[in-house]
Design a protein around this nucleic acid. Sequence first.
DNA 1: TTGCGTGCAAAGGTTTTGCATGGCA
DNA 2: TGCCATGCAAAACCTTTGCACGCAA
Lengths: 139, 139
Amino acid sequence: MKNDSGYNTKQKEKLLSYLITNKDEHTSVNGISAYLAAEGTPVGTATIYRQLDRLVEQGLVRRYTIDGKTGACYQYVDSDRGCHQHFHLKCKSCGKLIHTDCERLSDVSSHILEHHGFYVDTSMTVFYGVCADCRGNAK
Amino acid sequence: MKNDSGYNTKQKEKLLSYLITNKDEHTSVNGISAYLAAEGTPVGTATIYRQLDRLVEQGLVRRYTIDGKTGACYQYVDSDRGCHQHFHLKCKSCGKLIHTDCERLSDVSSHILEHHGFYVDTSMTVFYGVCADCRGNAK
DNA sequence: TTGCGTGCAAAGGTTTTGCATGGCA
DNA sequence: TGCCATGCAAAACCTTTGCACGCAA
């Protein structure tokens, strides 16, 4: 698709590797920075931001904000698995991201397009709420 | 319901009035501040934040982030109209917020709860995309 | 009068930017 | 070798907090 993503540097590899490993968690720039530093391969904050921006632009990573308060969160998305086709549920309690492969939900975007004239960007839209586990615990 | 929202100050009135007037737009703290100042009734930034926090807590106002980049956006919601029950569509091009009163969409949250065990917080969830108008123009 | 709300200014945290250096191609 | 990417530090932002004063009840 677009492998013209610039040079291949160690920092970039490390960052991507970390993001892929934690593709089910919400990672903050702070966390990434701390982890990479602890691993013995510290990466400058500015570089992390710059690389993340690029990755977001390329569609490989998504940017979230839990509730607008704390900083942004980033998350790798496997574009080959069609994650851009369905919706995601994000637990605001534990931060887990749940992928839905439910056709009922896939219909939602077509419904909105047809009946409301609104094109939904599923790669940007996230359902916020509380997952089953957290409901069990907190409740 | 809860009219125990503290004192009635001029600042508070001005702020609420502005939010209600612009209930269809996404307003930033900066914009609010600038507008009130231009109107001749400047309100301190800290006060705006404090009042907004309170309003959000009361459910009268919602807090958004366009894409995690710029600061937060706030928007008045008419709690009497049941806006907490249905979803909203947010055009990332013009910023317009569209209220949906579609039962099909209202079913979505119950579906997710039943079939995915996930409780959706509709007051926090927004569909991002492009509205009919902007699709016509930009396309 | 009492105490909450406001303003100002300073602090805190996150993200961006400028510039010199280092590394990929 | 030519550029792009990195790092550092400073700057730019956004948001919160402390404290004294003013105003609503």
